[in-house]
Design a protein around this nucleic acid. Structure first.
Lengths: 189, 189
DNA sequence: CTTGCCATTTGGCAATTGTCAAACGCGGGC
DNA sequence: GCCCGCGTTTGACAATTGCCAAATGGCAAG
């Protein structure tokens, strides 16, 4: 919980009463590995802050293959933000890659905090654009690098994460087949 | 100018006085092909709405090769949004691919509009997250498709744009070499 | 019109990555 | 403890794309 407050304070100022209000609205929630935090086609009812565990934002093509857009892990927010904000159907799935513990805000609580805390919307606007821009740059950078470079960059940028997610999900994030990733791993060691 | 107002109205409500205020703050600006609307390392002083022309958001690697992250064309906003919002140094260049005509808001005008129009920040928060999420998905989708599929998708999604930008810039957007794009074009026709 | 420059095209070849199939190995259920 | 199932590894080969160099073509300056 302290981590959540510390994270928010990076993006704007909050006084002690506001912090207490935020804490009173946050709820703990656990999700089992393999289940969905939110689903394509459904309206996102909550936004989560990851205390423990890994999720992936992903989609499926017409023959059921799943592709990972990015991973979300400890001390980051996770949500289909456009769905949550405007209560429109989600366009993607958010799946628990491991068992997860989150602190969540329901849409109702989030709206109450918007109304009570002037900086709230500005904080989330900054978080949203920073995170999305970084994800966009990451994908864009990967396009012009070969697979091994992409994998090494992942190892350096997300230490330890490669050992916590299935190879097949990491491969789909990197845009290569599981076979190729397996070979790259062998190459490097 | 009407196009700009119509665009904003897609993201929130504005009354006639607010619209008049917005129009009074917007300034016309032209940029010559090959020059920069904003530069990496500098603070973005304005946000633009493209009336005519094409720009590209791009970066350069350590040996001076330029890579296109995405194109911005008529009836879209263009800015390094994180730099503009928080007045931090930009991380990328925004270059005019053709001569361009924009309507711009200076940081000062933008702030005044924020203060006078309650929906203003909400409108731009929505635009920002929608646009960035779409760009992120586009890059992410491209990672798992072959080059020809990416090119055809570009042709379908941005009709006419392929003929208005240099092949080399389009190639770097698609993550392939100019030679490969040239061959793909020959293949398709 | 001529020249020169730069973007694009093309060819030949090498490197990367995909595809398909088989083998392997680890963990859960019996 | 044993077996099954699924994720991962490995091999062989094919397809894609990159790299380098040369040819082509269009445009602008003289």
């Amino acid at each position: 919980m302290e981590a959540l407050i510390r994270y928010l304070l990076q993006y704007g100022n909050l006084n002690p009463e506001q912090i207490a209000l935020i804490q009173s609205k946050a709820e703990a929630k656990t999700i089992e590995k393999g289940t969905y935090f939110s689903e394509a086609g459904k309206i996102a009812g909550q936004i989560g802050y990851v205390i423990e565990g890994i999720l992936r934002v992903c989609y499926y093509n017409n023959i059921g293959e799943g592709f990972t857009r990015y991973f979300v892990y400890e001390n980051r927010f996770v949500a289909d933000i456009n769905s949550f904000r405007d209560q429109l159907p989600s366009s993607e799935y958010i799946e628990a890659v491991t068992d997860c513990t989150l602190m969540i805000f329901s849409k109702g609580s989030f709206t109450e905090l918007s109304d009570s805390i002037p900086a709230w919307n500005s904080i989330f606007a900054k978080i949203t654009s920073n995170v999305l821009e970084n994800k966009m740059k990451a994908s864009s950078n990967m396009l012009v690098q070969d697979a091994q470079t992409r994998y090494i960059h992942f190892l350096e940028h997300y230490p330890g994460l490669a050992n916590r997610v299935p190879l097949s999900m990491l491969a789909s994030y990197l845009g290569i087949t599981p076979s190729s990733l397996s070979r790259i791993r062998k190459n490097i060691t």
